[in-house]
């Protein structure tokens, strides 16, 4: 059997603060295969976002080993991590994080800018991605001209633009009403059905119910992992 897409061994993350260290992760072991659909759940402060940031190479573990898509992330330099993110990871954030006063098309094309693609090639790919999330008609709209759900779909299109190995979404429906949440989650379901590996942090049971694997964190450790 091929190596898992993600392999975490003894991952810890300690935040050094003036008043004492915060142990956000205390030794996490986890394997995730290609094409899985995982929900990460747990109480506030249990370490979910910290773990996601490590998976997405936005941050480095204090100790432990983390291999994602064949690359050992624990000892890479910042610029190597940046290139890894650009190649292998798509992020969807709770707050969308679209560039203001910039069209949906250019927002989606942004990751490809750092891949050195030509403008024409970037726009062509961005257009495809917007079509995948059903926003072909809104390409020239600025974020302020879009609803929350539409903005999150633009963000999903942006995460897809670089054809990443994994899509990481940290509370992607946290800022949306339930109807819009369902629409966005439908898109995630479809993307996973098409083969992409999906890891979603959520507090909402019905969002978690869509995933085929639920991983629960408590105090920096995985306490439940059900398939």
């Amino acid at each position: 059997m091929a190596a898992p897409l993600i392999r975490a061994r003894g991952l810890t993350r300690v935040y050094k603060l003036g008043g004492g260290d915060v142990h956000a992760l205390r030794g996490v072991d986890l394997d995730i295969e290609r094409g899985e659909y995982c929900a990460i759940m747990g109480a506030s402060g249990s370490g979910k976002s910290t773990f996601m940031n490590l998976l997405g190479a936005l941050d480095r573990p204090t100790s432990g080993a983390l291999v994602v898509d064949g690359e050992a992330l624990q000892d890479k330099r910042p610029d190597e991590l940046a290139q890894f993110r650009n190649r292998a990871v798509g992020f969807v954030f709770q707050q969308f994080n679209l560039l203001p006063r910039t069209t949906a098309l250019d927002n989606v094309a942004l990751p490809l800018l750092y891949r050195g693609w030509s403008l024409a090639r970037r726009r062509k790919r961005a257009e495809e991605c917007l079509r995948m999330v059903g926003l072909a008609e809104r390409m020239d709209h600025h974020p302020s001209q879009l609803s929350g759900g539409q903005q999150q779909r633009v963000a999903i299109a942006r995460a897809l633009a670089g054809e990443p190995a994994i899509l990481l979404a940290d509370e992607p429906t946290g800022a949306l009403d339930s109807q819009t949440s369902d629409d966005v989650m439908d898109i995630f379901d479809r993307l996973n059905a098409e083969g992409i590996t999906l890891i979603i942090v959520t507090h909402e049971a019905d969002v978690g119910a869509r995933a085929r694997r639920r991983i629960t964190f408590r105090d920096g450790l995985i306490v439940e992992d059900v398939t």
Binding site: L58, P78, D79, A82, R87, F91, N97, L99, L110
Partner: peptide, 16 residues
């Protein structure tokens, strides 16, 4: 700052 964070997240290197 958020824009910079986003650019870094989607793969901008420090020198970019």
């Amino acid at each position: 700052t958020r824009e910079i964070g986003l650019r870094l997240a989607v793969g901008a290197r420090r020198r970019d």
